[in-house]
Amino acid sequence: MSGIHVSTKINGDAVEFVCDVEETLLDVLRDKLGMTGSKEGCASGDCGACSVTVDGRLTCSCLMLGAEAEGHDIGTIEGIAKGTQLHPIQQKILDHAALQCGVCTPGFVVAAKALLEKNPDPTETEVRFWLAGNLCRCTGYDKIIRAVMDAAAEMRGQ
């Protein structure tokens, strides 16, 4: 099987890889590039654990082929904290104890960041609907919603 050569940008860095035609972006991130922060929960776009951004747009990396990353700008969980400096969403998730097992957490962080970049002052209902594509089975979402609302307020300077 001949591989496809792909040049892309991930978290601001130029990255090249060779992938098979049927490999998803999630497969490439996890198995080829060692970026295992994005998780496979369903491989069908229903759980959001593999959330990344493609040119700033929230995307399930399990629904996109690796080859489709060519020429795009990919953002993953690994690129959200700046060194040891957490993004406010990450910090608020810790402060609110908004995680239990934590396997869905990277997807929630990526999705919530994408929301707040579009809508810095969301209502609780808007947060709930935006995050409806991310499944969490441990928390009942309560503390996650509170953490995102709190992060939004802090990022607005309130």
């Binding site: 996890r30 060692g34 970026m35 295992t36 922060g37 994005s38 998780k39 496979e40 993953t76 969980i77 690994e78 959200i80 904290a81 957490l86 990450q90 910090q91 998730i93 810790l94 402060d95 104890a97 995680l99 934590g102 396997v103 957490t105 990277p106 962080v109």
Partner: peptide
Amino acid sequence: RPPRPDGMDKVTGRARFGADMV
């Protein structure tokens, strides 16, 4: 209610789950 010891790894994607081992 202090922060959990494994929290930082879980909000940054560094925590290693079952499928993350190679």
